[in-house]
């Protein structure tokens, strides 16, 4: 078969390299380089430069991990702002959208139930409901809602906590993240960090 490679000189190989042996050795080398060395470099440098981000942008409160900036949580208590509908109840290990087509009657039925609940809770007409509160997110853990969806909930949250509406409204307005440079992405509010800020109010 093949002679052992000399320790000092590259072994001269007459063939162009079309054998199974070459393929096997190439597979081993490339899988180690691309699957081992490259991610190790990326993770090591990234971990040194961005330690908070590299472990999942975790948020600590009272010595415990309360969540992640990048993972929404389910909220049902009237004391908290609520997020968007989720197909997986905000479980990050089974992340998924609803995958329901616009023509699917199940989608209409789900949206109808959600819209009626909102109408009852806030006393608004259906055409005042921000669309992100009836549309399920793609990931099922969308951490954000639109500013309008947050404003809709101000009165309920303030009443449940027995604090002035203006305080809650000011908190919401201060936490609106505008599009980057005015053009990238959409204006939004992070529901989890907003609720943590609410809990921290005096």
């Amino acid at each position: 078969m093949k002679k052992p490679a000399s320790t000092r000189l590259p072994a001269p190989i007459a063939t162009a390299g079309t054998g199974w042996g070459h393929a096997t050795r190439a597979a081993v080398v490339l899988m180690a380089l691309c699957g081992g060395v490259y991610p190790l470099l990326a993770v090591s440098i990234g971990g040194v430069l961005f330690p908070h981000q590299s472990t999942g942008s975790l948020i600590e409160r009272d010595g415990k991990i309360a969540g992640s900036h990048l993972v929404g949580q389910p909220f049902t208590s009237p004391r908290y702002f609520h997020g968007r509908p989720s197909a997986v109840n905000y479980d990050p290990f089974s992340v998924s959208g609803s995958n329901l087509a616009p023509s699917n009657p199940q989608l209409r039925a789900r949206a109808q139930a959600d819209a009626e609940a909102i109408v009852n809770e806030y006393g608004v007409t259906k055409d005042a409901i921000p669309v992100d509160l009836v549309a399920a997110s793609g990931s099922g853990i969308d951490p954000h809602i639109s500013p309008d969806a947050a404003r809709l909930q101000i009165r309920r949250v303030a009443a449940a906590r027995a604090i002035p509406e203006a305080n809650v409204a000011a908190l919401v307005e201060a936490r609106i993240e505008p599009p980057v440079l005015g053009i990238l992405g959409q204006a939004r509010v992070n529901v989890l960090t907003l609720n943590l800020a609410l809990d921290a109010l005096p």
């Binding site: 959208g97 609803s98 616009p102 793609g138 639109s146 992405g185 939004r188």
Partner: peptide, 8 residues
């Protein structure tokens, strides 16, 4: 159409 889409 925000069904299946993310707010950000």
């Amino acid at each position: 159409n925000l069904e299946g889409k993310e707010v950000r």
